[in-house]
Amino acid sequence: MPAPRLAVFAVFLFNGALFLSWAARMPALAAQVGATEATLGLALFGASVGLASTAPFAAKLCARVGARKLILVGAAVTVVAVPSLTLAETPFQLGLVLFVLGSCGASLDVGMNVAAVAVTRSLDRPLMPQFHAGFSVGGLVGSLGAAAAAAVGWGLTRHLVFVAVIGAVVIAWVIRSVPDTTADAGGETSDTVEEDRPVLKRPLLWLLATITLFSAIAEGAASDWSALFFVNERGVSEAAAAAAYAGFSIAMATARLFGESAQRRVGPYRLLAAGAVVAAAGLALAVLVVSPAVGYAGFALVGLGLAFAFPVIMDLAGDAGKRADGTGGEREIGLVTTVAYTGFLLGPPVVGGIAHAGNLSISLGFVACVIALMVPAVLLARRSRARELTRAGAGSTRP
């Protein structure tokens, strides 16, 4: 069996690969169900609703049954639901299947982040950026595989069934090595007084959630609007415009792969603040300098700066909920994840509305300001955590 670290990395890889495999075939799915841009948008909204509505329940379920079982259930339904997309005949049916996939994605996200936190605790290493790099790499593999399948003439059914089978084999191979995160029955329930407080009454968690919200809005803007920005505002071709998000993704994945050393060197809060400065500066550069080359570099800086936001926040949220027996953090990760999904849900229409009233340069400039707001939120979160540890009379064991 693989080591727990490799097993959890494989789950992240699985999640990213299956998600981008069907997302990259969206033009074919839209043609299959006869969707217009409006009805396709409503169908895709089903996935977002599934993500945002399921995350809180997934966190509670994870605390009860453990990350391993939650991942197994989420993965099992995913490998069935992905090929089921090819059975949809109307946009409404497509939306229903996407709702199921969104719910599975929320379960997988909560489960794999809780399992990843367990591995970081057992090894005493800040490995969360590397685990999230697995999702980024999986997404790249899934999208490239979708492009290859379309190029050789594979139909949707053949492609998605093939992906689902490969995914099922991977999960079957690694699932027994995924940490079981259920608490010891006779163990202590808390190592700090804060862990017993309801998560909704902890300012620290709301600050961490706010940081992920801002990061999610920025990531959504980069994925949804970067190509259109380069076509409309910089006058490049559609093929050249696609390179902007590719640069963003590659920079993010590369930064995450080397994230452990960065987090050890500067600490999680400084890394978050510095990343926000880099991302905000990069997006401002892309908006203010009328040069496609500078724009590409700017979006790469956005990917570099945002690379650590979600994984480091998951690490800090899990640490904030750690129990004396070494488990815990499910509720805290669930809250932060739910708020992050809200950012993915609300970000695109907000950015689109500003662009409609003005232009994409103005709307992306607004996103740059949102990213900059992460810096004071990080400083407040650091101060809030210090107050919690002072009241508890104990310090965190994490760097």
Rank of each mutant, 00 (worst) to 15 (best):
A147L: 13
A147T: 15
A148D: 07
A150M: 15
A151S: 14
W154Q: 14
W154R: 09
G155Y: 10
G155P: 12
L156F: 12
R158T: 15
H159F: 14
F162T: 15
V165A: 12
G167N: 08
A168P: 12
I171Q: 08
A172Q: 10
V178M: 05
P179D: 02
D180R: 06
D184W: 06
A185M: 02
E188M: 08
D196V: 13
R197V: 14
P198L: 06
P198T: 08
P198V: 07
R202H: 07
P203D: 01
L204G: 09
L204N: 01
L205E: 05
L205N: 07
L207V: 13
A209N: 10
T210P: 01
L213T: 04
F214A: 15
F214I: 11
A222M: 15
A222W: 06
S223W: 01
D224F: 10
W225H: 04
S226Q: 07
L228D: 03
L228R: 11
F230C: 08
V231P: 02
N232R: 14
E233Q: 13
G235K: 00
G235Y: 01
S237E: 00
A239I: 03
Y245F: 15
A246G: 11
A246Y: 03
A246Q: 01
F248A: 04
T254W: 01
A255T: 14
L257Y: 04
F258R: 00
